[in-house]
């Protein structure tokens, strides 16, 4: 897979933004009497702060970024760069102390001047922010309160770090330096204003009404939505959206789900949701007529983003939803390219959309291989899991030319990716999105 020019340009801009504070250092006359380690510590601190400030951007779900990078990659970057930023931030005081132990006396909160104290508290809060995020699941912290605190703490940390810079007043002496230290945080925080203010306000004007709740196999439910007073959003098959069910779009309690309906069907959206967690268990109780808000579409999963002579889909359980949207869309478009679906389910009765998939086999050039974990005695098809031997047996000779889309639980993805590689599929043709956002 080659990176597009647009992707490279965005990455170059991102790198420039990370290191932009270093430019501030060079504005104005060169200060006298500062040794290498002190300057080095300051530069690392600036980069750490810049990296932290830029964290507001990936989680703001900016539409132009979400069409370039897969959402799970964006969140992965958010998590990984947070840890890196903490490393840079903590290196700043540590190097200062090691290079000049005299500095350590400033870290006594009772006697410390505010210019140092603000930096110490900011660093401590950064440690708490990132530590609580990394250990959230282990500490069994509930997602929603954590997320709310996470957002507020992030802003406080950023403000304290800026107070530290302005109070130390070393690289803020020149008016241009001060201006840049104001402009950069405005750029970082603009992402929050967009995500928490402008975007929900725009969504408020575009509500959806729940038209029906349909039971599906394997404890899943399909919600069908129609736009109220607007045309409704358009999406590409394989994409997903955040749903606010009977809640204001300003409410942070929104949940990501793949579209399962055809992208060619205008003014009608469907989401198929399996009862897995606290929220998904309540889906079946929502009554037709309920008000919903849909934020999206997001994601780069699906054939519209990866052109190919034919497609192979690999689904596990409710992971069929984005693939179902793709199959329905391709059928509506009259697509004649060869398609294969490897579909893993617990047993024959739990095959979600079983009947409709049989219908789609007639409308499309589609071959379906069901793989059942607990097959009944008369079952003639594949049993167990989607393994390298199952793939090798069914995949055509020209398998290396096809594009592969996989959606399912994480263990399945981890097992099937190497199986595909073993079966002779180039990994650059394998696309999978893991919906592990938090």
């Amino acid at each position: 897979m080659k990176l597009s020019v647009r992707t490279v340009l965005w990455l170059a801009l991102y790198l420039f933004m990370i290191f932009a504070p270093l430019i501030i250092i060079f504005i104005g006359p060169r200060p006298a009497g500062r040794e290498f380690w002190r300057e080095f510590a300051v530069a690392l601190g600036f980069i750490g702060l810049s990296l932290m400030g830029l964290q507001f951007i990936p989680t703001a779900r900016l539409p132009f970024l979400c069409c370039i990078f897969p959402m799970d990659t964006i969140y992965f970057l958010h998590h990984a760069t947070s840890v890196v930023s903490l490393g840079f931030v903590l290196a700043h005081p540590l190097i200062l102390i090691f290079s000049n132990p005299y500095v350590a006396q400033f870290f006594n909160p009772a006697t410390s001047p505010w210019r140092v104290l603000s930096g110490v508290i900011a660093a401590a809060l950064a440690l708490l922010l990132i530590g609580s995020s990394v250990l959230r699941k282990d500490l069994k912290v509930i997602y929603e309160p954590w997320r709310m605190t996470h957002g507020i703490l992030s802003v406080i940390t950023l403000v304290l770090a800026l107070i530290h810079i302005f109070k130390v007043d070393y690289y803020t002496a020149m008016p241009l330096q001060r201006l840049l230290w104001i402009v950069l945080p405005i750029l970082w925080l603009a992402a929050i204003v967009w995500a928490r203010g402008i975007k929900p306000a725009l969504m408020l004007k575009k509500p959806y009404e729940l038209k029906e709740v349909r039971p599906e196999r394997n404890g899943s439910w399909t919600l069908a939505l129609a736009p109220v007073g607007h045309e409704g959003l358009t999406f590409k098959p394989g994409q997903f959206a955040w749903l606010a069910v009977e809640r204001s779009p300003f409410d942070i309690r929104q949940h990501p789900f793949s579209f399962s309906s055809s992208a060619e069907r205008k003014g009608w959206l469907e989401f198929t949701i399996k009862e897995l967690g606290d929220f998904t268990r309540t889906v079946k109780e929502v009554k037709p007529g309920a008000r919903l808000y849909v934020e999206g579409p997001y994601g780069t999963f699906g054939p519209d983003f990866h052109e190919g002579p034919g497609y192979v889909f690999l689904a596990g359980g409710v992971g069929i939803t984005p693939i179902m949207s793709t199959l329905r869309t391709l059928a509506d478009r009259g697509d004649k390219r060869p398609l294969m679906l490897f579909y893993g389910s617990p047993n024959w009765d739990d095959v979600i959309y079983r009947e409709e998939i049989e219908e789609l086999e007639k409308r499309l050039n589609l071959k379906v291989i069901h793989v059942l974990e607990h097959a009944h005695h008369e079952w003639q098809g594949e049993k167990g899991f989607i393994t390298a031997s199952v793939l090798d047996y069914h995949l055509p000779e020209d398998r290396a030319n096809l594009q592969y889309f996989m959606c399912g639980p994480l263990p399945m993805i981890r097992a099937v990716e190497p199986a595909l590689q073993k079966a002779g599929v180039p990994m650059s043709h394998v696309h999978s999105e893991r919906y592990e956002m938090a």
Binding site: L11, R38, F40, L77
Partner: peptide, 30 residues
């Protein structure tokens, strides 16, 4: 696949961060 690029990007950020900081410090210090 994108994750591999993401890992490389993170490695680049760490390496560039340290190198550029050292460079800036070298130029500024006296």
């Amino acid at each position: 696949m994108m994750r591999q690029y993401a890992m490389r990007l993170i490695a680049a950020i760490i390496a560039l961060g340290i190198i550029l900081s050292a460079l800036v410090a070298q130029l500024q210090a006296r």
